[in-house]
């Protein structure tokens, strides 16, 4: 059997399959990136060109130079960074307590957390709309940060819970005997050991906040748009400007792609944690 499986033909067939799959995954992304560097004449000619065209930066110059691209970029960064920070801070404290302490209502909180994780974002739309009117909030970004933190907390808590469970209790007990307060134990003893856990949770949280569209579309105005909302704005204009749209799409995708290249292992760990450990 082992002979058969390790025969060069088998190995080659294996690689060919993997390569075909990789091409299927990459093809649409490459279409976007390449189109963003084409001028309208090449795009509207209708004949797909994969590699050999004269690249132009016109599309990027247009979207960065005109409109309020810098503002939308700053909005997106603020919303994603702040909500990620809040999610990790609040989620980390909560996951720690759930993983370590016995208290009344612990099981209820754990189950409720898993249940609210499934709330569809579309369900939040009307209540969020009502909340903004009722409370008369005029800082759109603050509202987005609040909802993104809420949306991300359940998954972050659940992921970090698993990481806390892997740390031996003896470490904390030793620190407590030495007179450390609970917060000191949390920040001085555990946080350094939780780096990779927080990295995984942070990547997932950032990605959701950075990519979120429907609440941002509903709750932001001319100056508070995030990048995905700004990108969708190119569609409603008369005639669809594909070059510019693809340039916008490419810029939006840069941070998630960087994460993928530098932390693929952690991302896969986070994805599989859901099904495989359960």
């Amino acid at each position: 059997m082992s002979n058969q499986l390790h025969s060069p033909w088998r190995v080659m067939a294996h690689y060919v399959c993997l390569c075909l799959l990789a091409i299927a995954c990459l093809m649409p992304i490459w279409v976007m990136i390449s189109t963003s560097f084409k001028d309208d004449i090449v795009i509207f000619d209708g004949k797909p060109i994969w590699f050999f065209f004269v690249p132009t930066m016109d599309n990027y110059e247009y979207i960065v130079g005109r409109g309020k691209f810098d503002r939308y970029l700053v909005n997106s960064v603020i919303v994603a960074v702040v909500s990620t920070f809040l999610t990790l801070l609040l989620g980390g404290l909560c996951a720690y307590a759930l993983a370590r302490a016995e208290f009344k209502g612990r099981r209820f909180v754990a189950n409720a957390t898993l249940l609210v994780r499934m709330v569809p974002p579309a369900v939040l739309a009307v209540p969020a709309f009502a909340m903004v009117i009722f409370l008369n909030v005029n800082n759109d970004l603050l509202v987005l940060i609040f909802f993104y933190t809420a949306l991300n907390l359940p998954f972050a808590i659940w992921l970090l819970f698993g990481f806390y469970k892997q740390i031996p209790v003896e470490l904390e007990e030793a620190a407590i005997v030495d007179g450390a307060s609970p917060l000191q134990v949390f920040f001085r003893v555990l946080l350094p050991l939780m780096k990779s856990g927080y990295a995984v949770a942070g990547i997932f949280t950032f990605r959701i906040a950075w990519n979120e569209f429907i609440l941002a579309l509903l709750l932001t105005g001319r100056n508070t748009r995030t990048l995905p909302v700004a990108a969708s704005g190119f569609l409603t204009d008369t005639g669809v400007e594909w070059g510019r749209i693809m340039a916008m799409g490419t810029l939006i995708v840069i941070p998630p792609l960087l994460f993928t290249f530098f932390a693929a292992r952690q991302i896969i760990a986070g994805m599989t944690a859901g099904a495989v450990k359960g």
């Binding site: 995954c25 279409v31 693809m246 998630p256």
Partner: peptide, 24 residues
């Protein structure tokens, strides 16, 4: 690991951008 990195790319692309690419 290289292949796995490539395979998770579609999952990381923002849904809005996925929609834009396929609409094109």
């Amino acid at each position: 690991s290289v292949f796995r990195t490539i395979f998770i790319l579609p999952l990381m692309v923002s849904p809005v951008v996925v929609g834009l690419i396929w609409r094109y």
